[in-house]
Design a protein around this nucleic acid. Structure first.
Lengths: 128, 128, 128, 128
DNA sequence: GTGGTCTAGACCACG
DNA sequence: GTGGTCTAGACCACA
């Protein structure tokens, strides 16, 4: 499910984080669902367990999952997501939007993308 | 004009890039305007010229400026902006938007932010 | 009476320990009162008896209860509380206080919290 | 300056964190002061640099220090300390206080400790 | 020189 | 079997 790009400048554990976060954000993992174990995902992606461990630990700090010692890691409900992460997302959103607007896109263009992004996510929820 | 934050996790040359790009994006530098020389900007910001050089090269690669040997660097017209940069921005925009929607914001919430961000930018366009 | 939180990073036996200690500390269990048997509590909390056993042993070591072979475990009088536990609490208290003071709180701020925490505790003392 | 106890159940990196945090909280390290490099502290404490790195990274997340790539880590002003850390401290404070009050100490007893803890810290500031 | 990332492999605590 | 910690040693990016 998660694809890694070793040529990318971004570190592996960040790519793993984004992949897992995407699973939660798109609803592929519902709150309470169990994530793959550290070792299982490490072997599945052919990378070191420490790297997976780091991604999991960071996502737990951000509030996207919680861990039960001896049991595994589980997707957290979206209410638990850290405020700092929310702020970081708004900065990212505003930064990209400002430059896209300069490059000639209109607020309405981007609004269409927003609506398009919102719609399929709701459809996917029904796949479960 | 460009402010550096050494406490920021982002590397200095990235901050220089963003600062210069912002000058172009906001219209402070119009197409064809000359940018400060590498050495001048380096001494003005009190950082190593290599760092400035790296930022200029990267911005030229993205299409925000062009360099004429022996003359200096100049702001490129909007059309020169690399398509790869546009795509990267859209990826960044969509990613942030999808996650913010998951976290409970509505497309309308984000549209308000877009309009707020667009308003001042359009005022500055009238400077020419 | 004891609530477990599997999402908490603290191990289960620690949570059981704190729960039982709280019963003694608040006077819900008076000196000499019998605690539930290991097996009874284990089935009541739906966890492994080994985990309960571990909590009981640790609390006995701290002096909060004593065990009579073949009879069960009983709440110890306040004087039984191990001096090591008192010292650990003072270290914890001083450490938190010092840092809160550094972060801008005043001794008076913290005194208010102490009085607020003390008030309900004294009411419960009158139950005996 | 920092003492490690390998017999302690708490992980080494937590002990390092507490030691460094103590230096900041007591004013031994003022805002902006440089901390020892990861490698230097690792060799000084005879532990692996990765362990120090982990402590620094965590303290940076808590807001006690900031890092400049290629330069080192520096003590942050107390305003930057994370809200989550503040909350955790209050929980620790309240928990210790509640049990100490049960064990017979009065709010006034603890208030004296608070004033005693606040006073020497102010003296130490003048040592610089 | 600095910090940041990753690997390989080990050992422990928990349930 | 799970996650959590630690070590040893390597390589890279940054300034």
């Amino acid at each position: 499910m998660i694809s890694l790009n070793y040529r990318d400048a971004r570190p592996i554990y960040e790519q793993v984080k984004d992949g897992l976060r995407h699973l939660v954000v798109t609803g592929a993992l519902q709150a309470g669902d169990k994530l793959p174990s550290v070792r299982a995902l490490a072997s599945s992606l052919a990378i070191n367990p420490n790297t997976i461990q780091r991604a999991y630990e960071s996502l737990e700090h951000e509030g996207y999952l919680y861990t039960v010692m001896g049991k595994g890691s589980f997707a957290a409900p979206q209410e638990g997501v850290d405020q700092a992460r929310r702020n970081a997302l708004l900065v990212q959103f505003d930064g990209a939007a400002a430059e896209l607007l300069f490059l000639g896109m209109t607020p309405e263009d981007l609004y269409q993308r927003l609506r398009a992004a919102a719609a399929p996510a709701r459809e996917e929820e029904q796949h479960d």
